[in-house]
Design a protein around this nucleic acid. Structure first.
Lengths: 218, 218, 218, 218
DNA sequence: GATGAATGAGAATTCATTCAT
DNA sequence: AATGAATGAATTCTCATTCAT
């Protein structure tokens, strides 16, 4: 948890600090991220970080939570309120999630790292929390879909959630590969929507198609 | 690439070295893995590592390639030769892949780390090569499936491969979560097949069912 | 020396500050004591300490002097006025000193630290002054004892004082060891007289016996 | 415990390292002692210290043990073998102990610090071991004295040991005060016997006299 | 008078790599 | 071929003190 000192900071300074920290953790995983580089980038003293947070892990935890909340809020704010079926709901959420990732590549990369972070045992709890939040979100979607009759009632809910989660996360890599886009570069370059909505829509159509009907012929 | 010195090593010594190194990289990601711990485990001098390999990265590259080849060979050797359809082929490959992971948890953990390794920029190429090999393997399966008429002809081949790849890799986590199994513990404990063939089969049936027919009702 | 700011403080606030500071220096030696922990305990700003005192050393000096004066006053107030002999005088002073230590473990621990404080060169002068005060006190006792004929006239007065001083200070450790008592715990727990007057008397009888007649047989 | 690396060091280099470390811990207590200053003095890399020892605490432990053993050995080697009475035994041991302290002021100061070291909780065990060794040594002397009839049979053995211990340790300060001698200066200046045997003997005669017959007249 | 954010030198420790033997 | 001691840059974290508000 950030200390009061951090919360009392002038908004501009706080923003510059968060941006630099975000950048560092987007470009390097937990172990490789360096407190020294962050303070150099912001132009403050090393000790200040420890006035703001309890230490590197505390800062990391804050950033991951911040990124997750921001992304979820971004998505929720854009979901159509008229209840469509499960697949279009998932499609919408994924669409806006991807758009968020493009516009905020630092958040996206941080979350990606955090998802697979094995670089330090002390981060396990952070990763677990992040996964749990995503799973809960998807489980809600799936259960509603089953209730509404969009999904087969006999599916293994946990496995379905796992599959959806993995496919959604993997979208990042797939889009990168297909459209020659690198989130790492984007972290340096700042935002920019390098993949058009049309392209993104096409990919999602394909993905949702597979999810809906499977791969088998007929 | 291993230096000649390494290849000329007495097989037993070489094996002990590989085992210890495997263990280290299974338990820690690239950055966190320690050359010192490896030499301590084997009981050789630190300098020897640099007589065998160009450095930590070179050793890592060697181990990842070794693990990948070993796993692929293990799977290929067990695939039924009479041509089944795509889904049963994928099911078989995945089944034997999982069995391999259980019996060789060090290889499995190393490969898992390598798949998501972002801890050091210098490992990017190793990870990329590993992914490329897996993709090529799956792409072969998919193309054959399309040719044979098992799969719809209009699917996006790359996306299909991506999806299969992710779901296959994620199986590790899913099985761990469902059956309370930890690969990290297994690395310490040695082999042992903690999940019965029946349980594994049930999970794969479910997964293949989804892949075949999708999630939608009717 | 405390600055006027400190002396003008509302008595209650001043007391709370002194208590917290006492506690800190009782639990840690000079180097290890933390200004930050003190202000946290009192709930004031860090800068205030520097409005009250010139710095950590100045505060430490004040506390040591305060503790020494308080302890001496405590003892003097309880000494029987009818002049007994030297040994019963020393016995009385030591008895009340020990009682003071039990009832004010923070003062006691601070003084103990200060007696042996080598953790920072800048505290040397404080320790020296503390010793000098104790020595002067004991020297008065000894000289009176010689004058009165309680003590041999040919003793080395300085050495006698040194011996008395050391034995008195060491009493703390001895009582702790014998009765399983920890001043550090007492600092946390608050006062309480964990060693009964009877036990204390028995120990002092023994000590005074040795001082009086020595260790030799017959 | 020193690592093999340290034990395999060329004697000269090892000696230079020990000397520098001894100096550092003689001049500063555990907390205040700086690994950095030691390596600067020896002219080696910081990392080397961690090739030799597990860390600062391990090094400290080694030095304290070394100093204690060296001092005990020094004393034991000089004790007259013909069994005198308790008091002359104690006198001899103390005499040679003091001579050792003068000739090896670094050892002496280190041991003095270690005796009263409260500067870090992690050193508690080292101090406790040091005290225990001294107490055991003195207890042996006392028990033999009682058995031989040199000491009264009704003395409190533990208290007697405590008293002897304190007085012996305190001799350092007393001699310093009486003869204007500073161990800290001596650590810088190197050895030299600043106090003649005659002076030392006179002090010890006085001390032993008090121990033997007490302070009381007649 | 009080505040508390900023400072920055200093601490211990790690570890891949080198190279003389 | 093997050794293993030496390196030194890099890491996180601490804390008394200052000073603008």
């Amino acid at each position: 948890m950030p200390k009061p000192t951090f919360l009392n900071l002038p908004p501009d300074k706080r923003r510059r600090f968060v941006d630099a920290a975000l950048n560092e953790f987007a470009l390097h995983d937990y172990r490789a991220a360096s407190v020294g580089r962050i303070v150099d980038a912001v132009g403050i003293a090393k000790g200040s970080v420890y006035q703001y947070f309890d230490g590197k892990l505390d800062l990391y935890r804050y950033l991951v939570d911040l990124a997750a909340e921001t992304k979820f809020r971004h998505i929720d704010a854009r979901l159509a309120s008229d209840a469509p079926d499960f697949f279009s709901q998932y499609r919408q959420a994924t669409f806006h999630g991807a758009r968020f990732d493009f516009s905020e590549p630092s958040y996206a990369s941080l979350l990606y790292h955090a998802t697979y972070e094995p670089s330090a045992p002390e981060t396990a709890e952070v990763s677990a929390r992040l996964r749990a939040a995503s799973h809960a979100y998807l489980l809600g979607l799936v259960d509603a879909g089953v209730a509404r009759g969009d999904l087969r009632a006999d599916i293994d809910r946990d496995m379905t959630v796992y599959a959806l989660y993995q496919l959604t996360v993997a979208l990042r890599d797939f889009l990168g590969a297909r459209f020659g886009f690198s989130f790492e570069d984007a972290v340096h370059a700042g935002a920019g929507s390098p993949i058009g909505d049309q392209d993104l829509s096409a990919v999602l159509d394909e993905l949702v198609g597979v999810l809906r009907h499977g791969l088998a012929l007929g």
